[in-house]
């Protein structure tokens, strides 16, 4: 990736970010700063607000109070949209070939002609999707679609990648492929922010863990500390696989 020379979007600063919906506070006032490097796992029980927090970070949702600010020197309205990517739990593919899906994403960002074709081919190859490049994307298996979604995100050369439980609907082989892809992104210098339910996956991939319960940030710690020496009762119960309220 070629971001080394260009000024970064990051850090991302959330100040007092709150999200209310119909008299329910889904996210309590929350301060968070995401630095330039690393792999952050957002963890917590169902309904903790993990996906919500990620959508607010990515800009898909506006917080009802508080501010989200890309504080890096390279952050302009234009770069903020273009230099971040997101992979969803269920990838959405357009009714066209796998390869055409990657090209579409590039063309939206103004990459055209031979440059567009070259980068799309490169991404398909990088994720080992050559055999299915010409197949209609929507009839691919869940695992293949998720790898395609990762290839599409990779082609965009993002500086930060958000992943919302990308493996929760996949079989073990596909999960391995996605985890491998996460390492690929990381090796390319991409900042990773990922939601997961899977304790083992968090241990394998994370540098640090952000732990939410009921829309509240309860604990933020390096991964080893979080699993070996949780500071809160909720986190201790969670890492032991107990239900947390």
């Amino acid at each position: 990736m070629s971001q080394a020379a260009t000024p970064s979007l990051l850090p991302l600063e959330l100040r007092g970010v709150t999200f209310r919906h119909r008299d329910q506070t889904l996210l309590q006032p929350l301060d968070l700063r995401l630095e330039r490097d690393g792999k952050t796992m957002i963890m917590g029980p169902n309904g903790a607000g993990k996906s919500l927090l990620m959508r607010i970070c990515h800009g898909l949702l506006q917080p009802t109070a508080g501010s989200v600010r890309w504080a890096g020197a390279g952050a302009t309205p234009e770069t903020v949209r273009r230099r971040q990517a997101m992979v969803f739990q269920r990838p959405v593919m357009l009714r066209r070939s796998a390869l055409a899906n990657v090209r579409y994403a590039l063309s939206v960002q103004g990459v055209a002609g031979s440059e567009c074709r070259r980068r799309a081919d490169e991404a398909i190859e990088h994720f080992g999707l050559q055999a299915i490049a010409q197949r209609p994307a929507r009839v691919l298996s869940g695992g293949e679609q998720q790898r395609l979604a990762l290839a599409r995100a990779w082609a965009l050369r993002p500086e930060i990648l958000f992943m919302d439980e990308p493996t929760s609907a996949l079989d073990p082989a596909a999960i391995r492929a996605v985890e491998e892809a996460v390492r690929t992104f990381h090796a390319d210098g991409v900042r990773i922010v990922m939601n997961t339910h899977d304790l083992g996956q968090a241990r394998r991939l994370a540098d640090e863990v952000i732990f939410l319960v009921n829309g509240r940030l309860v604990e933020r710690a390096p991964v080893d500390d979080f699993f070996e020496r949780p500071r809160t009762r909720e986190a201790a119960a969670f890492v032991q696989g107990e239900l947390v309220w």
């Binding site: 990515h58 898909l60 997101m86 969803f88 357009l94 009714r95 066209r96 939206v108």
Partner: peptide, 26 residues
Amino acid sequence: EEYREQLQSLGVTRLRAIPTLLWDAR
């Protein structure tokens, strides 16, 4: 409904989404 978040994430404007959606619903 199905595409909105993905298209917004890719930076697709509503104007640009019209031909995309018409084509996908062809």
